[in-house]
Design a protein around this nucleic acid. Structure first.
Lengths: 226, 226
DNA sequence: CCAAAAGTGTTGAAACTACACCCATGG
DNA sequence: CCATGGGTGTAGTTTCAACACTTTTGG
């Protein structure tokens, strides 16, 4: 396609902040750069946007190519356009954040030079990726408190304790067990399953799955956690 | 600057959804296009991003150039990247939303081919600008309920009734007068002024101004309106 | 029988909703 | 004195926070 609007142009990239949860800490997926600039530095997965694909498509393509990730929860985060983000020329980046279920975490790690890091202990990042990651984290915290997206970080079947651990890890403080369960169950988003989970010398826990249909009703008005 | 990363590139624009409030209805500022594509159609103010300016700078520059607007509340909204948004070639647009105080509304209208429209009665818009505007509206509604930004649409000195009318116009439903005043005042963001306003055969109203210092404390934790 | 996590209810405080009348002013 | 919008308080309900013990299982 010719350039109808003729002027110098910024290059366009997408960068993805990919969150995962291992049951203990919130993790972010990073890739070690093989090329300059910032060769050998850890960076967010991402790459250039092609002229014939949408931004969402570019983000999904990069996640699949670089990390073998498919069908993840993906949402546009913010667009970063400082003039010298990239030391070589003007590059504007549309940042996304993605939530991946534990089932997919292993696949992601197989990818060459990809690794999960706890968000509390990140390496130095290339470009302005530290800022992007911080933005993503606060967006995740915000969304978690008023939209039902926590389930995107848990296995399809999960226990209330797992869900609570996730909230605690992301929000950064303890929650009262009884109040948490009351609140979550009152939202009427979870379907209890027949099975139960037992993984140790203690009473087995009830398993639930998230019910997206019920969720649709709530999605708009939202709810509120502390 | 040469293109270090060599590949076909999308053009980059910013588009601004500019909201104003006349005391009755929420208004949006539009510009009639003088050039194709969509010549003579109404569109959001905006234009191309230059390689040596940030995205925020581009948005502010366009608002000033096209509408004579300065010092407005401005926030990045979302980036729109459908492949054929612009019929001629690939153009990705970073959308912003702006809130302007009535003092500045007149200036904006003076600009050639610029006009305020009530959001309830908009003309057909160029490109995907209708979608952008809808997105901005729902963002505005969302933010109004948990962040103190309503003041950006009111004169520096305003009455509680004006503030309530604004909330009602944006949220689209009536609010209880007594409950509204209780809630707003309990947030402790407003400083009552000595003066009072009287513009009719009735008791004059107390004027307030918004106190940004007090607001900083709240900004993070947020509050909640219905 | 011990250790470990699952599960469950109540009470007091705070916030929210609904609701109706008097006040100050200009004409 | 009338019309207009400004201003105020309370009671019932709902939501929220704090808090401790019993249950089920494996070893």
């Amino acid at each position: 396609m010719p350039h109808v609007y003729d002027h110098p142009r910024a290059a366009l990239t997408v960068d993805c902040v990919v969150f995962g949860f291992d049951g203990g800490e919130l993790q972010a997926l990073l890739i070690r750069r093989g090329l300059p600039p910032f060769k050998d530095t850890w960076a967010l997965p991402g790459g250039f946007v092609r002229v014939e694909e949408t931004l969402d498509e570019a983000a999904r393509r990069e996640l699949e190519e670089e990390n073998g990730l498919r069908n993840v929860f993906l949402e546009q985060l913010y667009t970063f356009g400082s003039v010298h983000r990239d030391p070589r020329e003007r590059v504007v980046s549309i940042a996304y954040f993605a939530l991946v279920k534990p089932e997919a975490v292993a696949a992601a790690t197989d990818a060459a030079e990809a690794k999960w890091f706890p968000v509390s202990d990140l390496p130095t990042l290339a470009f302005d990726h530290a800022e992007i990651l911080t933005t993503a984290l606060s967006r995740l915290r915000g969304k978690l408190t008023y939209q039902p997206i926590g389930f995107e970080l848990l296995p399809r079947k999960f226990t209330l304790t797992q869900l609570q651990r996730l909230y605690e890890a992301v929000l950064g403080h303890h929650l009262d067990k009884r109040n948490f369960r009351k609140k979550v169950l009152s939202l009427d988003l979870l379907t209890p399953l027949e099975e139960s989970r037992q993984e140790g010398p203690h009473r087995p826990a009830q398993l639930f799955r998230f019910d997206p249909e019920r969720s649709d009703r709530l999605k708009e008005r939202g709810f509120l956690f502390e």
